[in-house]
């Protein structure tokens, strides 16, 4: 395949600039969302309430970027009538931005529960049991943003496998929490909060996978949603 053709810009340089701007804004948004999760885990690890305020402030920026990128995608659809790779880029971006915003929301939800635990002297220790899951989710988010930035379908598939590991870890956390509740009914209220937080972390993994699927659609034109990972992997090889 001749690289010159594929990387060659549009005849309309303005269109190139518009697409570049959207791309860079998505990456900025990704960075902010990553910082939200980072701060949430920091709050959990260090018991730092300030970090939780940061998560909330970041969320406002993330929401504003989501709306801005959506508007820019709408403008491109209206003005440029994009086709083929350009069309897929707009569709995949518009979807991914929604997933990024939801990741930010989930991080904020976890942060709020951690705050609630601090406020009520609830068992912060039970929350700390989520740190390992959180770190793995953070790593997956980081890899997902790299996948988007580099448009790599191979790493998209690797990320899908990582999410499976996260799902298994989430299942183990649930078992632990159930046992904790069984031990003493007084634990139930705290354990439920931790369970919701674990659920939010696991959902972040799912949103990452949505983004990876969007990257595959963007690059290959293949819609791989609801398909077994092995099949996806086989198809892309």
């Amino acid at each position: 395949m001749n690289e010159e053709v594929m990387v060659g810009g549009h005849i309309s340089r303005q269109f190139d600039l518009e697409l570049d701007e959207i791309r860079s804004r998505v990456l900025t948004m990704g960075g902010l969302v990553e910082a939200q999760l980072d701060k949430t885990l920091e709050a959990l690890r260090e018991g730092d309430s300030e970090a939780i305020t940061d998560v909330e402030n970041l969320d406002r920026k993330v929401n504003a970027l989501e709306m801005q990128i959506d508007e820019e995608c709408t403008q491109i659809l209206a003005k440029r009538q994009p086709a083929a790779g350009d069309l897929r880029m707009i569709i995949a971006t518009s979807k991914s931005v929604r997933d990024l915003e939801r990741i930010g929301d989930e991080a904020e939800r976890v942060a709020n529960m951690v705050q609630h635990a601090f406020d009520n002297d609830a068992s912060v220790k039970a929350f700390k049991g989520l740190l390992s899951l959180g770190e793995h989710v953070k790593e997956l988010l980081h890899e997902t943003l790299n996948t988007y930035a580099r448009m790599q379908t191979r790493s998209a598939v690797i990320n899908m496998r990582k999410d499976q590991v996260i799902d298994e870890e989430y299942a183990r956390v649930l078992v632990r929490l159930v046992n904790y509740m069984k031990k003493d009914p007084d634990n139930i209220s705290d354990a439920l909060d931790v369970m919701w937080a674990a659920r939010s972390l696991e959902r972040i993994g799912d949103h990452c996978i949505n983004i990876c699927e969007n990257v595959i659609y963007l690059v290959e034109g293949e819609d791989v949603r609801h398909r077994a990972i092995d099949k996806v992997s086989e198809q892309l090889s």
Partner: peptide, 10 residues
Amino acid sequence: QLTEAYITGR
């Protein structure tokens, strides 16, 4: 790739 280049305005 040429079809892609043409219909995307390249």
